[in-house]
Design a protein around this nucleic acid. Structure first.
Lengths: 328, 328
DNA sequence: GCGCGGGGTGGGAGCGCTCCTAGACTCGGT
DNA sequence: ACCGAGTCTAGGAGCGCTCCCACCCCGCGC
């Protein structure tokens, strides 16, 4: 180590450079001075070799058809996670896991050079979740899936159900009664919970949920469009729609417009996520806001705790709130 | 190394595990067999320590106000780059560099643990570019900026000018003559080139470019809206708009609709990028397509070459083509 | 004045790998 | 039968760092 040349022994220099404990002020000054002069950069590989930590965390995206990767949800989580990790000197490694081959490669990579994983899994890809869990690698999940809803895992999620309740209640309060919903796939807790919130809100207003007003989409614009079309066929008297995300809400609005319905006069529309899409939609979309950036930050913080040695799994649920715009 | 225990010496095992050269088939079989049995995973830190390569490449996003990070352009590049790198066993590290502090941290991180950088710089952030270049680290840029347009750098860009020419020519051929353009900031070559294409196309049809039909936006929906509003004030007779990206085109459409213009009957609109936004816009937006995923793939390939020892800078320009939808 | 404890330091050991060199072994030519 | 060229292998060296232990020195208590 070059820093030694300017003062003391390697041991002392190392002590100074990685959290000075039991070092004299004199030595500290000498070492830091020398390090600055020599523009010293510690070799992280060497450090990893001996500490067993790589200072690298994977951001796993199980990207399937719906191109989760370009989803604003992903972007927000990534940004938040990056912020939390940066202050701990940990870097984020992008890891896609679309197919089985990629999943294997990911596990290979993960067990060999990552300290932990942040997992965003679009669908409840149990194979991925299971193999991650069984690998024993520290991992924190974004959102519960059927497989990941257990308390033995670490995860961060939003208050999907109460968010949905707030949205549907808002519609009910404005006199809407034939409220349809376009939810997500049944294997995603986010979709299930939002659907459940829809039912709860209706019942609390004495309205029995009409199952013919329910459609299961895939969180894409196109599926929102198709779902809305089917709802219109089955229930032409629909006067509102609550979609489980903004993209589907936008798709639904297109279907409504094509069917000659005026938004919000004939049919009110509410989305979920409060993404940029919602704000720039035509008309601007009322949406349930969830702070994805904060979710990412929390996920990373939990993961750092876990890597730091925490044993008991932690879960965190983030609040949501309704952002009212012109579509409702 | 555990693999030795099942056959030969460390040296031989190492030779087998990292590209078998001068090894007997017998030894190969023995080592691979033993490695499989022991579920051997090489320690990448140790390997890095001796080879001097980390197998890590940074994806640098100079994220400013416009949230480049959630831009579909970024997502595409990231996906393409990931694909190219994965087959070389290289991982992608996400590196944001919004402010000066982050930039410093990034450089620290880069020089110490990354083999190279893929740089997406929203604005022509010369400070970032300069410091990267002077650090001597292998880097490939996405798109030229004023600072990065030089041939001593490595970059990948799209045929911005000819893409713009194609778009504007398409409008001219359909009889439009009062064609406005909303371009990007002057410090981005992408914007400048697209503006230049607009001029060229007009002149080739004998139309002298009217500078009052030019607006400079910031690539956001909102700026598209504002720019269009200003154009309508200055030139109410405008009959077409060419925007330098889809988001601004969408913003422009909103402004046009608010002004009572019908798209495309009164005013035709064309965007750039052919992102999902374009397809799902109302009405569906004609747009100049550029294959961002391929750009990312190429960037990564060039970077690998550079890291592999290639000295002479390479640049690559990708073709664009017009995707005609109902807005024009 | 002697022993003991604690803050501070020096340097050996070793993390797991690849590189390199010396040497062993094989085979064909004379 | 010998030798040289070619092929493959064993194991030492060392990458740059942290950990650990032995040690030194100083001040205090008996």
């Amino acid at each position: 180590m070059v820093a030694t040349l300017a003062g003391v022994s390697r041991g002392t220099a190392s002590r100074v450079l990685s959290g000075a404990t039991n070092v004299s002020p004199h030595a500290v000054a000498a070492v830091t001075g020398a390090a600055a002069e020599l523009r010293y950069r510690p070799n992280l590989s060497a450090r990893s070799l001996v500490t067993g930590r790589t200072g690298l965390v994977g951001l796993v995206v199980n990207e399937t058809n719906e191109r989760l990767f370009s989803d604003p949800f992903f972007a927000g989580v990534a940004r938040g996670a990056h912020a939390a990790l940066a202050r701990a000197g940990v870097a984020l490694v992008l890891s896609l896991a679309s197919d089985a081959a990629e999943r294997d490669r990911l596990l290979e990579l993960a067990t060999t050079r990552l300290d932990g994983l942040l997992v965003i899994h679009g669908h409840g890809d149990s194979a991925l979740v299971e193999s991650l869990v069984s690998s024993g690698l520290p991992a924190v999940f974004a959102g519960r899936t059927r497989t990941a809803a257990r308390e033995d895992l670490w995860w961060v999620d939003s208050e999907n159900e109460s968010g949905a309740i707030e949205a549907v209640t808002h519609l009910l309060e404005r006199g809407r009664r034939r409220i349809a919903t376009i939810t997500g796939p049944l294997d995603m807790v986010a979709g299930v919970d939002r659907l459940s919130g829809w039912r709860t809100a209706l019942r609390s207003f004495g309205v029995e949920p009409d199952e013919s007003l329910v459609e299961y989409g895939t969180f894409s614009t196109e599926s929102g469009n198709e779902s809305m079309t089917r709802i219109l066929e089955r229930a032409p008297d629909v006067d509102a729609v609550f979609a489980a995300n903004d993209l589907m809400a936008v798709g639904a609005m297109r279907a409504l417009r094509d069917a000659g319905r005026v938004i919000p006069d004939d049919v009110a529309v509410i989305g979920f996520d409060d993404s940029d899409t919602a704000a720039s939609a035509e008309p601007p979309l009322t949406s349930v806001a969830q702070d994805v950036e904060r979710a990412g930050y929390l996920m990373a913080s939990l993961l750092l705790e876990r890597i730091g040695g925490a044993e008991t799994p932690r879960q965190e649920v983030l609040p949501t709130h309704l952002v009212v715009r012109t579509s409702s």
